[in-house]
Amino acid sequence: MAGNPRRMRPLRNLYAKIAAIPMVLTALVVFVGGTLWTVTYSFTNSKLLPKLNFVGLDQYERLWSNSLWLTSIQNLMIFGVLSLVLTITMGFLLAVLMDQKIRFEDTFRTIMLYPFALSFIVTGLVWQWLLNPELGIQEFVRGLGFTGFEFDPLSNPDTVLYGLLIAGLWQGTGFVMCIMLAGLRGIDEDIWKAVRVDGIPRWKTYVFVVIPMMRPVFITTLVLVASGIIKLYDLVVAQTSGGPGNASQVPAMYVYRYMFTAQNLGQGFAASTMMLLSVLIVLIPWAYLEFGGKKNG
């Protein structure tokens, strides 16, 4: 009665484990390891090369007393809040319009979504040109006879963020619209029948029935858009290069400057650690809602 030898457990799924090596390395070495490495070196006074010469919170003190960093943070907050509120409201409203059984839905969606296929560099450069004060939209409207017309956001430190915002919205709202539309289509068709039987006006249905039902979609969108905003870099580089002066600097540019051009690595690491912290502020409540809530229901 010869039985097969009891196979060693680690050898089961051997190929799966080999196949997962890239994932394991990426997760552990790059994502976890890289993050810990940067956080650790943010407490050192590394200049041109990383050195383990700990100086406590020195880099962070210097960071928070650097006006360039403060401007960057302030810019990101203003841009971030406006961009979040506007992309999500506009995205939802457009999705509602698209969900009215309109004709040419595919055409409209193609038009609204194509900017999302373009890079931020292309987006930034196009809008830089459109907002050109001598030859762009301002000049066009003046040419129509409104000679006093002013529309030159990019030259003015107070308005440059709005110039970036116009471009950012142009690039990203189509994407949010698509997610929202998928969310709307996911709502049970019987809801619409029930609402019609009850005679509830359409706007009330959206506000009191549809939006609460789409809560998970809104939260996901919020997290996606927010984590994208924190990474904001290419658009600013292309459209304003951080100018005029330093009026449109953002944290990602600050990090790049200190890591790769100003040769002050410690400062760059401290700044990127602060960026990580801000992402965690967005991410942890979401993860809690998303995964902590599942256990209860």
Partner: peptide, 22 residues
């Protein structure tokens, strides 16, 4: 599915850890 404990014999062979096709 791999059992946590115990044995499976088919046609006089202990197949507890054998591949499905075997």
């Amino acid at each position: 599915l791999d059992p946590s404990d115990g044995q499976i014999w088919i046609k006089g062979q202990n197949v507890t850890w054998a591949e499905p096709s075997e």
